[in-house]
């Protein structure tokens, strides 16, 4: 098993931390992982993306030309990475940030209304966990149990009261992802 993922969006959407939690969860399952951010001077509102690879075998390059799955959370990200999804791969977008939908017919297109749902449920802080839930519905790369362990690792203990709402977001994300 090897899954190569790009997650891209605005800074502040939790793109990097979503990738980190996925990578940590991979580690908890004894898999090899790499987490490579496109780091820059950007803060909230800038662009942010991260390449996460989860594999049974040692990983050669943390930087890739093409991906199994692209998660795009704004229009520039969609335009940048749509062409880099492997044929037969998946693109996941949140309709909130997207004016023009993906156009490729040789890949699977999935929509997740994460922003809208997060706002409805007043779980905006967990926006990225809705998206992660959507990804895990398509590709159960890691178990939810290990995602929760990963969250415990990356959240300081004083924020552990937020763990149940994160789990709720992941489960809801699995429900609301739809094929386009």
């Amino acid at each position: 098993m090897k899954h190569e993922i790009i997650i891209s969006g605005f800074g502040g959407q939790g793109v990097l931390s979503m990738g980190k939690i996925l990578a940590y969860a991979g580690l908890m399952e004894g898999k090899e992982v790499t987490w490579m951010p496109a780091y820059g001077p950007e803060q909230r509102g800038g662009t942010a993306n991260v390449t996460v690879i989860v594999s049974d075998k040692p990983i050669s390059s943390p930087i890739l030309s093409s991906y199994d799955t692209a998660i795009v959370l704004n229009q520039p990200s969609l335009e940048k990475f749509q062409g880099k999804v492997k044929p037969g791969g998946d693109i996941i977008f949140d309709s909130f940030g997207i004016a023009e939908q993906p156009t490729r017919s040789d890949i699977n297109t999935w929509c997740i209304n994460a922003m809208e749902t997060a706002a409805e449920l007043k779980l905006m802080k967990c926006f990225n966990m809705f998206v992660l839930g959507g990804l895990l519905k398509l590709h159960p790369i890691v178990t939810i149990e290990n995602v929760m362990k990963a969250l415990r690792k990356s959240l300081p203990e004083r924020h552990w009261d937020l763990l149940p709402m994160n789990e709720q977001a992941i489960l809801k994300g699995m429900e609301i992802i739809k094929k386009v």
Binding site: K20, V33, T34, W35
Partner: peptide, 10 residues
């Protein structure tokens, strides 16, 4: 370099 410094792995 910045790749090895910034990336995370096992």
């Amino acid at each position: 370099d910045g790749v090895i410094g910034q990336m995370m792995e096992r």
